[in-house]
Amino acid sequence: MSSAFYLIRKDFVLIKRMLLLFIPYYMIMGYTVMDQYTMFTLFPAMLLLINGCTLDVQQNNQRFLVSLPLQRQDIVRAKYLALFPYALLSFCCTLVLYAAAFALGKIDTPPAWREIALMLLLFLVLASLYLPLHYWLGQKGTQIVNFIFIMLIMLNVSAFNKLLEWFPAAGEWIATGSADHVLPVILLILACMILIYASYLISSRIFIKKDI
């Protein structure tokens, strides 16, 4: 298990420079589109994931990983476990941004907790689609996959608003949220967990068989 910790730490060492870019990003985005949680919670987390994955295949770095005394599924597992610190990090950033905006008087409503939670869930769903593709396509396909996923998130901003128009009930839940809707929420979380696990199984299967 400690190996997963060191692998994740490795990812953070690599994406350190990207984390510095977060400060101007949040400042600018916070100034322009304060109510878009996609841009604060989902997009940064996804960027971290994509960056961490891309840096692993950029040169022959997967060979380095495989040369370590680890099993291949350990390497894959660490990537999936890294999703949680990524999600946590962008969640914290969102909160900090909100607190700052609130203190400055730019905003006076409480944070939309349910929307934030939904974005985090969406991040996990997107990641579980992204990672098998990353392991399958390797170095050659990474550029295209990255592009598609960033486009997906961009579209998500408008798609999400559309979705709310189609299902007013969902919009209502996000806005108010009431106890009688607990069951679908639990089901949603459960489905998401199953999806991640299935995705992990597929990714490690792909990576184990691969010639690096």
């Binding site: 060191y6 060492v13 040169q59 680890l70």
Partner: peptide, 30 residues
């Protein structure tokens, strides 16, 4: 058993954007 092997590759397999010191820190704990 790979811990018992010292491997020198024919091409660089380390993260190029890291410094020598950073790279050493990344790999030593394994």
């Amino acid at each position: 058993n790979k811990a018992r092997i010292g491997y020198v590759s024919d091409e660089n397999i380390y993260y190029e954007q890291l410094t020598v010191k950073q790279m050493k820190k990344v790999l030593a704990p394994f």
